[in-house]
Structure formats: C-alpha cells, structure tokens
Design a protein around this nucleic acid. Structure first.
Lengths: 164, 164, 164, 164
DNA sequence: TTTT
DNA sequence: TTTT
C-alpha cells in the first residue's frame, strides 16, 4: 500500500562478530546482533538501573554486507537503518516461532560504522582530514546498486535457510 | 549507556480498533495493530507484488493513550514513533515465546493521527495539558512529564498482565 | 566521511503546487513547500497557540520528481525523507544569502503521499526498477543505482539556476 | 496542526567546543556546530570526492545542555535529534537574514555522545568490562542524566537574545 | 503558502 | 486485521 513507512534506526554495539552466510546464488547475507541500552535512576529506590535490548539485524545488500564482513567485529559501534520484518518458522520440535528482525534490503537501509577507525578522510568531515583508505567506509557512494528491488528473493528460499 | 539509539518510525493503518487495558493503578495501556506495506514490480514475472507487515504497538503513556482511545479506530492512518522491545513469555503449553513490540514509553514516543478528521483539540499538541509560556516554541509540552522514565514499571507486572 | 548521518523526516502539507524546473540535460528538479505545525496550550494565558514551520524541499530524483509532478498539489499531505543542505547564493543587491533545504538526492530520500487518494498500486514500491504501474509509487526499488551520488552535479550549475 | 512531523537526525562531529549562553532566568542555551559529510567516487573523473555539511544545533533543554557543557568538545561525535526551525533576524546593516537550525526544545530532542569516553562506566557497554550476561552488552550509561527530564525552561524570550 |  |  502506498502511504506507508517502516523504518528502524539503531545506534548500538555488536554483541559478537558478524555472521556471514551465502545464498544459493552466492550473495552474502549478514546477521548482526546489536545491543542498545538505556539507564535511568529508579524513582522509588533511587538506584541506577539499566536495560539492554538485543536486535537481530539481517543484511541483504551486497555492499553493506561487505562493509559488515570486512570492518565490523564484536564491540563495533554502528548506525543501522532498516525495516521491521517478522518471520514465521518452525523449530525442531515442530513449534511455530516468530522472529522479528531489522532488515536491510538491497537498495535500502544504511549501515555505518561509528567507531572512528578506518574511516580515513572521514572524521566528521575535515576532522583529521586526510584521504580515505581502501575500505571506503560506511555508506555513501558506491554501495547502492542497480537493478531494482529483488526483495522478494528473500522470502523465496531464505526463510528456510536461516532459521536462527 | 551512552551512545545508544533505539527508534522505530511507522506510518501505517490500524488493522482493528485500539485495545485498551488498565494497569492495576488504573493507568491505561493501549495496543495497536499497525500495517505497513510495500509493493513493487517483480523483475522476473513482471507482476506487481505486495507485502504487508503487521506491527504490535504498545502505548504506556497517558496522553498518547487518550489520543488512541478517543480518536483512533480501525483503518486510521497513524504516525508512530517508539522503541523496539522484545518480551519473553510462556504460552499455555509452557512454550517460551518472544514477542517484539514497538513501545511508546511514558515521556517518550509519538503518536499522530494522519487522517485529518477527528483531530479535535488534539493536534499532536497539547495532549496532556500542561500549558506553556508565551514563547512557546515547539509544541509538545504537556505530554512529557517530569519525573523521568519509569520504564521499569512496565516489566514489573505488566508482562504478566498482557501476554498477547 | 564514514560515521555520518544527515537525515530529515517531515510529515506535512504542501503550501502550494509543486514547482518543476528542468536542468540543462532535461532532468527534472522539483521544489516543494511543506508546512509542519504544532499547537499547544499556553501555560500562562491558557490560550491555544500554533506555530507553523515552512520547509523548502528539493527533489533531484527522477522517479520521485514524477510522483511529485503527477500526484501532489497544494494541500497534499506528504511524508518526506531527505538531507539537510545549506546553499550560499547572492541576491540582486549583491548580498550573500544562505538557504537551507531538505534535499532528496538521486538514489536517496523518500517521498510518499499520505492523502490516500491517487495512490494507485504504488506502494512505495518499485520505482525505477522494473516497470511500474500507471500511478507510480512511493519510493523504493529502482531509484538507487550504481554509481554513487552525483550530488555535485547539483552544485555545478543548479545553484545558479535556482536562486529561490 | 495535527498530523505533522518535523524531525532531524544527525550523527556527526563537533567543529568546535559547545558555546553556552544563559537566558535571563539563568537557563542554559547551548549551540553546537555539527559536521556531517559524505564521500563518493565521481563517475566521470573517477576521483574520490567529499562534501561536508555544517549544522547549527541549538539546545533549550537543561539536562541535555548539561551533557553538552560537561562532556562534549571539539571533535566529539554525537547523535542529535531535533526539529528544523528557521529564524529571521536583522544584521548590523539592517539586512534581513534567515537562519535554519536544528532545535532541541524542552521535552523534545535527544543528544547522545558517541565517542565512548567520559561516559562514566558506559563506554559501549560491558564489552569487556563489567557484569552483564554472557553475550556482551549494550551500550548505555552516562549520557542521560540523572534526575529525569526537567525539560521545561526554554521559551522565555530567547529569539531576541540569540541573533547569531 | 498548508493543515487542524 | 489495514490501506491502495
């Protein structure tokens, strides 16, 4: 339907290294586990409390997958922009399960490393200045590619492939 | 911790009327079922395809709950801004389940009706009351209140109350 | 640079019909004037107050430009997602002026009509890529392409062309 | 008006130390200069190009102002969420000028330091340090301050006071 | 200049 | 379950 927006924005840290799988056609699919947390002072007890939320991020985007694969690791801080999607799957016991994920489809979504290394000329602009490295960096130029949404490819056979 | 962002932005339509529950202290908790959808032309078949995603939205915010209660109904188009949260619960068969929701905590989150009718005094505006000074400036005001997040109240006893 | 995000999200109404210009190469550039407003109750006087903000939106994106051109008009409600950019220009009196705009670059940004009519099969769907239906659609697929931003094309000669 | 959203999200670096002013009532007003930038490879020349955009951020929010005052400095990386506002003012020559800013009003807006230092225990979370579960932990911690939002204080007469 |  |  038209007139619809489905957007998730996360800034958080990876709880473990990115997990890369390959689709049948060789395209990479990357899974990230991203933690966000909040802390506040409990009104009644006066104690400081903290709550961490874990997000499953799935990247179906060649260029962003490469970034994840090559530059992110456990502990990396990232900016992630994707869509909410809930998948239904069946576990080994035949139980139906639902899994809600933040999906970076091809031609959609953003993934930016916020750790500050490798970012070459980056640096919030001229901060530091100086070139760019082989890595490219977060988002930006090239990583969008050409051929229109093939978002359906995902539901085709991937659901079966990745029943995490 | 610092350095963390957890934000969901949806524009979609209600699949059914808002469901209102009361907490033990009388505070309202509203559940919305929001649909977002996308359509695209399938590259191979040339057919038009559409996919709808359903989002469970939970409102722990007096003023926004009133808006939902009084102005929203099945079919309403809304702008929703909240946080992703995943709850664990146990179904009748003792199976562990997870439910991921878009939560509008007290003092956080936004809910705006985009249908243009029924918007009464609402205006995304003065909900909650509050007043404001002569300069005003933004809007807002009333629906955020003073005493900091009590987000924990939710996990306290609500998980048991609302195992949808 | 890596590690940078520049994003504006607006939901508002067009104050006038879209203005379409052509670049030298024939590419369309669309300007929208979008109003957002907020209302609140003044604390001291108890009166209701309202403040409207006007945003200049510039669309350098063929598909989205077509949507704007064909479906939007004065009064239309839209969702707009773009980037903040400030341009410097010189008025007739030789005075330096700055103009800050919300820019929907090629391959970036989203524009969705929220009015509910004319939205055809659109669905924010398949623009660009593979065909489309009669109506067009939100944003989506095809409009991301391969070769990275050509954002400079804009500053190249457009600044002179559009000193609004 | 109802049904309106005006939101800016930036991740960038401070170009200089925060500038703090006081309103007549002593309330702080903080100005930040935030850089975002993008780089891409120019299609024709094949050269790598970069463009930096500078954003004026104005904070009318006690707690966030304190964060800015105490923890941010030139070079800090921040997440900023606010509203777009354009002010009209008159320069020394009687020329009318417009300035567009990203405003963090009372009860609105977010400011988070992404640098990971100074964050009091925080630092990208328990990665490494501290207790937490086996999985690692989020981020969190210091940048929200302590006593709950006291966000109402702006609005006095500030437009006149700060004609930058 | 919109919208409520 | 919505909407187009």
């Amino acid at each position: 339907m038209a007139g619809s927006v489905n957007k998730v924005i996360l800034v958080g840290n990876l709880g473990r290294d990115p997990e890369i799988r390959r689709m049948n056609n060789g395209d990479p699919v990357v899974n990230l586990s991203v933690a966000t947390s909040e802390s506040w002072r409990d009104k009644s007890s006066g104690e400081r409390r903290e709550k961490t939320e874990w997000h499953r991020v799935v990247i179906f985007n060649d260029n962003l997958a490469k970034v994840a694969e090559n530059y992110l690791k456990k502990g990396s801080k990232v900016y992630v922009e994707g869509q909410l999607q809930t998948r239904k799957w069946t576990d080994q016991n035949g139980q139906e399960k639902y899994s809600t994920e933040v999906v970076l489809q091809r031609f959609r979504g953003e993934l930016t490393m916020l750790d500050g290394r490798n970012e070459g000329g980056a640096g919030g602009g001229s901060f530091g200045g100086g070139g760019q490295n082989e890595m490219g960096g977060g988002s930006g130029g090239g990583q969008r590619s050409m051929d229109g949404p093939k978002e359906d490819f995902r539901n085709a056979d991937l659901d079966d492939e990745i029943p995490f």
